[in-house]
């Protein structure tokens, strides 16, 4: 197979990516932070840091803690607010040749609506990832993501306020992930992003207190990969939406596992911290895999491991 015959393009419910590899919200800043290490134009998509209507200072430290093959974080959605995002950070990415996905978070359903409306018509945004699963903020966040009725309603409201494709990011902190995914589909979601972090904690034995100032944080990294795979597999079986899959992807083989479990695209999160050019390396690795296995379109393997 020649390189020119390979088609890496991905259509994630209307979000077109030149290849399946996205970088996850909150792990890649606004792209510029990683420009010294990789060619941003080589990425499938950059999902920018979660944006709220007003600026947020985030949680007090300690915010992060390394655990076995993973890490906990409780950043608390620190961000400069939607106006600063649009005026100071988005222009950098617009100048690049890369798909940009905004990530929005609100305290109330009205805030989600206002954010979607604010992004409407903004040049350079290909889609909206809905953060309904942040475990680290007091209001909103996770509480939206664990109740199917609220998931449906928030997706519906956002859809009513935007013409962009909408992709809710699902929380794994639920009993039945399929029920949540179906609710998102009912609300009109164009794609699903999964999974967000698993809620966890660590305790400092010396001080006899929780390590994180927020007490609980979100677990990410290779430690959560089996959970992410299982949930993507289950959702792919029952729901007809394209999935952007992630959770502890550290190399090309991991990425292929996610695709075989049903992910159309994959997202790199914590792995960016370990290898700042990981997303690019995986994109190259997928091309090599296609060449070696005579695959001209990766869609051929999406969900191939799923027994229907």
């Amino acid at each position: 197979m020649e390189k020119q015959d390979m088609d890496l393009t991905v259509n994630l419910g209307g979000i077109i990516m030149k290849n399946p590899v996205a970088v996850a919200s909150g792990t890649f800043g606004y792209g510029r932070e990683y420009e010294d290490y990789l060619d941003i134009n080589g990425l499938g998509a950059v999902i920018v840091k979660g944006t709220t209507l007003e600026p947020r200072h985030g949680n007090p430290p300690v915010r992060i803690f390394e655990t076995a093959a993973g890490m906990l974080n409780a950043i608390g959605l620190e961000n400069p607010g939607v106006e600063v995002f649009l005026n100071q950070h988005l222009p950098y990415l617009i100048d690049k040749d890369v798909t940009v996905i905004a990530n929005i978070a609100g305290n109330t359903i009205e805030e989600y609506a206002a954010l979607a409306a604010r992004l409407e018509g903004c040049k350079g945004i290909a889609g909206i990832e809905l953060n309904i699963s942040c475990p680290n903020v007091k209001q909103g966040g996770l509480q939206f993501g664990t109740d199917p009725v609220m998931v449906r309603d928030v997706v519906k409201t956002v859809k009513a306020n935007t013409s962009l494709p909408v992709m809710p990011k699902l929380s794994p902190n639920v009993t039945n992930i399929v029920e949540i995914a179906l609710a998102a589909q009912e609300g009109g979601a164009d794609a699903l992003s999964m999974i967000n972090t698993l809620m966890g904690m660590a305790i400092n034995v010396q001080t006899r207190k929780p390590v994180l100032a927020n007490v609980f944080g979100g677990l990410s990294g290779p430690a959560i990969k089996p959970v992410a795979l299982r949930m993507i597999y289950q959702v792919h079986q029952e729901v007809d939406l394209p999935i952007l899959g992630g959770g502890g992807i550290m190399n090309t083989l991991d990425a292929l596992e996610f695709m075989m479990a049903g992910a159309t695209g994959i997202s790199i999160g914590t792995g960016n911290f370990v290898n700042p050019r990981l997303a690019y390396d995986i994109m190259v690795g997928l091309q090599e895999y296609m060449q070696e296995n005579q695959i001209n379109n990766l869609n051929e393997i999406v969900g191939i491991a799923v027994q229907k």
């Binding site: 800043g29 985030g58 992060i64 803690f65 950043i75 700042p276």
Partner: peptide, 13 residues
């Protein structure tokens, strides 16, 4: 303690 080291993760606040 840091994760990314490049100002992206906002962990070392």
């Amino acid at each position: 303690h840091m994760a990314c080291g490049v100002g992206a993760c906002l962990g070392c606040a």
